[in-house]
């Protein structure tokens, strides 16, 4: 029973990693930029959700408004930060992105204070019993949220013209333009979708921990970078599988290696081990 519960817990964490990392990999695939400030949007999403939920009493309304606002902020970040730097070498955009992430964290500290915010009502911390298994309601919400978002993403990318345009733009932007794809709109669209995902992940983590603090994006930022490398940079399916795999490995690792290896260190031991065997990542093409 312990093994199954650990696997479930791993899938819950893996789902959160997946929602954050898939946005990063979408953006990397399109612009070849490591969008570190994505984790800053994750934190922003959490803050907006907790503040609006406490103000209105509705978690759904809080989360929806958070998704919309963070999606728009993501597009603004693209316009003001990345677009002027696209002609520069990739490390310029990376440094700018790290700078923005630090600035966002400090901004949250100044605006919302250093001690964190919590939900006034905590019904999501109650436990749900499914047969022999017992999970926090927030864990169930995380799993369901991830499933809904990932199905939405699969349909968007595989069945819609925007998805086709995005994938064509990733392969050959000049040819995509030749057939009428507005690659600028595709970029804004992808930043919006990726940022909405970050907002959902931030909101779900806020509910899970019943705490939002300025530095809550730190762990997702470096762990999602490890995940997109593991998944094969720009590979969406690889990123999803790597997220779930890492979640499960961490869950078992905390039980069996917890005495000498911190939970957050497991991701990097795993990353180093994989890159020694497959430098292109678990699911990347050589």
């Amino acid at each position: 029973m312990l093994y199954i519960e650990l696997a479930l817990q791993g899938l819950v964490n893996g789902s959160m990693y997946a929602i954050v990392a898939v946005g990063l990999t979408l953006i990397y695939g399109l612009l070849r930029v490591l969008h570190v400030a994505h984790a800053g949007l994750f934190t922003l999403g959490a803050y907006i959700t907790v503040l609006l939920t406490n103000a209105t009493g509705s978690l759904v309304a809080g989360t929806l408004i958070s998704m919309l606002v963070v999606g728009i902020v993501g597009m603004v970040v693209y316009r003001l930060l990345y677009e002027p730097l696209l002609a520069q070498p990739p490390y310029v955009a990376l440094i700018a992105s790290i700078g923005l992430f630090i600035a966002m964290e400090e901004g949250y500290r100044i605006i919302f204070g250093p001690y964190g915010n919590s939900f006034a009502s905590t019904w999501l911390t109650e436990r749900v019993t499914l047969g022999p298994f017992s999970m926090a309601a927030a864990d169930v919400a995380m799993l369901l949220g991830a499933i809904v978002l990932l199905i939405f993403l699969a349909v968007l990318m595989g069945r819609t013209r925007l998805g086709m345009a995005w994938r064509a733009t990733v392969t050959d932007p000049a040819m995509a333009r030749s057939f009428g794809v507005d690659t600028i709109k595709v970029r804004y669209g992808i930043f919006f979708v990726a940022s909405v995902f970050a907002a959902v992940a931030g909101s779900l983590v806020a509910v899970l921990n019943n705490l939002v603090e300025p530095t809550m994006g730190d762990v997702p930022s470096y762990k999602s970078l490890a995940i997109i490398v593991l998944g094969g940079l720009g590979n969406v399916t690889g990123t999803l599988l790597a997220s779930l795999l890492l979640g499960v490995i961490e869950a078992y690792g905390t039980i069996y290696t917890g005495a000498y290896l911190d939970r957050d260190a497991i991701a990097f031991v795993f990353l180093i081990a994989v890159l020694m065997i497959r430098p292109q990542g678990l699911f990347g093409a050589r």
Partner: peptide, 18 residues
């Protein structure tokens, strides 16, 4: 210069994007 990761149908549909 086909979109190599897209299927044949998807490549053709991108051609008719407008």
């Amino acid at each position: 210069r086909l979109f190599s990761d897209l299927t044949v149908r998807e490549n053709l549909m991108v051609g008719g994007y407008l």
